[in-house]
């Protein structure tokens, strides 16, 4: 006759701090090289370049104006 064991044991949860936990598999860029230059990426970076140059010049102008250097 098969014996039936009382297998009930209260559930417990172990909560581990992230700093104490084991390392996790992360998404790595090793061996991937640079991002694929899709059309969207190319356009975004091109617009960004132009924008940054324009904005920086204008902002410098504005700051100098506020500082009283330019009248």
């Amino acid at each position: 006759m098969a014996s039936v064991q009382n297998s009930y044991e209260p559930q417990r949860f172990s909560v581990i701090h992230p700093l104490d936990d084991v390392a996790e598999q992360k998404c790595s860029s090793d061996g991937l090289g640079q991002i694929a230059m899709t059309r969207a990426v190319r356009i975004s970076l091109g617009v960004l370049r132009a924008y940054l140059v324009l904005m920086t010049l204008m902002l410098c102008y504005r700051v100098l104006q506020l500082a009283g250097v330019l009248r």
Binding site: R12, V15, D21, V22
Partner: peptide, 10 residues
């Protein structure tokens, strides 16, 4: 992994 359920022995 942050919320592993463990048996009392574990």
């Amino acid at each position: 992994p942050a919320l592993d359920i463990v048996s009392p022995s574990d």
